[in-house]
């Protein structure tokens, strides 16, 4: 361990000191350049990225000037408002029947999220069917099967290596025959720069649109909160492929803040539907912009 671990420990101190400031210990502290620098540190360390951080701080400075704010406590309030404003969007409730196509890169937690989502809808007395269209990763459908059993829902699956589009097709037929309310499609994790795999996803999406046009169709990208600025590229590519309708952020129970969603919200008008905060079936919560911002500041 070298010099960096010392710097790194310093980060915790910076964070702590700022928290104290924010918590009102120094309510009467005047706003200085150092203060802005500390805010920059917090935003950068939460993965907001340099552009978004700069933008937010500029907006904050403007606000401070316009509203003639003098003290850090008011500044915190103003900053929170700015940040909440970026994230707040009207998440429209879905109607039934609804189809969720769940996409994302490898290892973000798609399968786990689907298990939790299925449970939530069964709790609402909805009839749920899960389509195991990840026919690529070893034991993916076995994993989903365990979740389906936990949520007590039907699962449509095929063998590893089968055409995922055919699984989706079968699932839709079963969905129609059983007059179910919710169809959740699990897809194989794929890196968004693999052209062939993205085309495969497009094909799956087209089948859904063609076979069940009457359903409310939501295309959800799952993002790992620990992901950095690459999440922007992920959203861009998946949006191009299927036209996204919303985001689910997972793994927010760690120390990562998932701040890249501010940059995403700035560029794409995508609502955050849910957040994942753990491994048990109930650890999928509704998104709340205020709480999300509170966890960063």
């Amino acid at each position: 361990m070298g010099v960096f671990s010392r710097i790194f420990n310093g980060l915790h101190k910076t964070k702590k000191s700022l928290e104290q400031k924010f918590d009102g210990v120094f309510e009467n502290v005047k706003i200085t350049d150092d203060f802005y620098e500390e805010i920059e540190c917090i935003l950068l360390s939460s993965d907001l990225g340099s552009k978004t951080t700069e933008k937010i701080i500029q907006e904050l400075k403007d606000k401070v000037r316009k509203e003639k704010l003098k003290y850090t406590i008011d500044c915190k309030k103003a900053l929170k408002e700015i940040m909440i404003n970026i994230l707040e969007n009207n998440l429209e409730k879905n109607s039934f029947p609804v189809v969720f196509l769940v996409v994302g890169v490898n290892g973000v937690g798609k399968t786990t999220t689907i298990g939790k989502l299925a449970k939530q809808y069964t709790n609402l007395n909805k009839k749920v069917i899960i389509a195991a269209a990840d026919t690529f990763r070893a034991a993916a459908s076995e994993q989903l099967n365990v979740w389906a059993e936990r949520a007590k829902v039907q699962i449509v699956k095929s063998s590893t290596g089968a055409d995922p589009a055919s699984v989706v097709f079968d699932a839709i037929n079963s969905f129609k025959a059983k007059k179910a309310d919710v169809l959740i499609i699990d897809t194989a994790g794929r890196l968004h720069n693999k052209k062939g795999l993205m085309l495969e996803l497009e094909k799956i999406s087209k089948i859904v649109k063609r076979e069940i046009p009457e359903a409310d169709y939501k295309k959800i990208i799952v993002l790992d909160a620990t992901t950095g600025q690459n999440a922007l590229e992920q959203v861009k590519s998946f949006d191009e492929a299927v036209g996204l309708s919303g985001i689910i952020i997972t793994k927010l129970d760690g120390t990562a803040k998932g701040g890249v969603v501010f940059a995403i919200a700035n560029e794409y008008n995508l609502p955050i539907m849910k957040i994942g905060v753990g491994e048990s079936v109930d650890d999928l919560l509704d998104f709340n912009a205020k709480e999300f911002v509170d966890s960063i500041l």
């Binding site: 671990s5 939460s46 909160a225 620990t226 992901t227 950095g228 999440a231 760690g254 990562a256």
Partner: peptide
């Protein structure tokens, strides 16, 4: 470690270490 990890990578690595 996932190469797409953001700022949290140092926190994770340090903690495991």
């Amino acid at each position: 470690v996932d190469s797409m990890t953001g700022q949290d990578a140092v926190e994770v690595a340090k903690s495991f270490d």
